[in-house]
Design a protein around this nucleic acid. Structure first.
Lengths: 221, 221
DNA sequence: ACCTGAACACCGTTCAAGT
DNA sequence: ACCTGAACACCGTTCAAGT
């Protein structure tokens, strides 16, 4: 029965029966509910090292020691997995920007730190940031993702309202101002990630310059 | 010879010989050097209608009536085709923004028109814009793409220098100012494309607001 | 030169089946 | 409930072969 032409799969099955334990990476845990978590973390790891295009359900499954279709017990499809990864990103982004704002004195300098923290997150996690904004999450309609994104945005709105209360920022509609600031830091981050600032440009110096002009504008008064 | 089991291909070949003209979309031209052009245009059409992910070498080839590998005579790979599409985008972007700048009086209003034209191009051609900035063009090292991108950027730099000469813009380093403006319009465009402005937000009004704040800043003087 | 067609090594997803 | 394995319908790319 166990001839040379026996598929490797069959041999492994025999060995697993023998030892009483499969030879894959600790699969028993996944029967207890943390495969979902493991899938998100492995997807994120792959994204950081190889980019979004490197994420394959086959690869993720193999690394975790489960079949390539096990994922469908926890996510509707691949896009839903990426949406979960994006959600993690917005959460981290909110925590890091809020930290910069609160650590500072909630003045304009703290607001600039907040912006710098935003850009720093994007530049340090370019592939992750691209998953959050690159249009990879299709089919949409992930309410939890929308909620997490809205949470990160709200941190910005709150800071702006605070600055207005202290007479440090223009009395425009806070939402409109928040969109403006978001667009700027998003643009600064994207240009840096895409390497479009030019070789001679100092990325950090440019971020500082951009945050200064955010306050003063570019016109000559 | 021409039995029921004869492949359709053979039948078509016979018909083509008969009529003296092939039944595919004018393939004879492709022997004269415009398959490259046709591939770019068909790829762009597919991008506009179905997004980048809808572009397959098989689909493009089939529509044009050539084999799915014919492309490799004109492009190194799929990424090189997308790079050519991106190049077209930067060319159009430069022409449209320059037009807005020149049609206006080269004053600050014209500069805002230039910014609005930039955002308009992105919003009207979201999938195309994403090809230009979404990190789809990998492997990089397409000098012609870099050159076209640099050309679009130079139009912005020139406008800024002109404004400075007329005493309308701050006397900062023009390159740094150009990067700042680019980051802002890029951010505004991306947020609109990604539908991240919120349902109640008026996209055009926001663009106007953003371009005003570009001049005045957000701080309270 | 330019294009074809088969082959290769991949994909995501579905689904009946196993425990 | 949770996971598997085979099957399906796709991909991009290579390459010998045709004209």
């Amino acid at each position: 029965m166990l001839t040379l032409s026996t598929p490797a799969r069959t041999i492994r099955e025999v060995l697993e029966k023998r030892s009483g334990r499969p030879r894959r990476k600790r699969p028993s845990q996944y029967h207890h509910g943390d495969l979902r978590r493991a899938l998100i973390e492995e997807a994120l790891r792959t994204i950081q090292s190889d980019g979004v295009r490197g994420v394959t359900l086959r690869g993720v499954g193999e690394t975790l020691g489960v079949s390539r279709t096990a994922l469908y017990r926890h996510f509707a499809d691949k896009s839903a997995l990426l949406a979960a990864v994006a959600r993690e990103g917005f959460r981290t982004l909110r925590l890091q920007t809020l930290d910069a704002w609160n650590q500072g004195g909630r003045d304009w300098a703290a607001f600039e730190s907040m912006g710098a923290a935003y850009v720093r997150f994007a530049v340090r996690n370019p592939a992750h940031y691209r998953v959050m904004f690159g249009g990879f999450v299709v089919g949409s309609a992930d309410p939890e993702l929308d909620q997490e994104g809205a949470g990160a945005f709200q941190a910005l709105v709150d800071a702006i309202v605070s600055l207005q209360r202290d007479g440090l920022m223009r009395e425009d509609e806070p939402l409109q101002l928040a969109r403006f600031v978001w667009a700027l830091v998003h643009g600064v981050a994207m240009l840096q990630i895409d390497g479009l600032l030019g070789a001679e440009a100092d990325a950090e110096a440019f971020t500082r310059f951009a945050l200064e002009r955010l306050r003063t504008g570019t016109g000559r008064n």
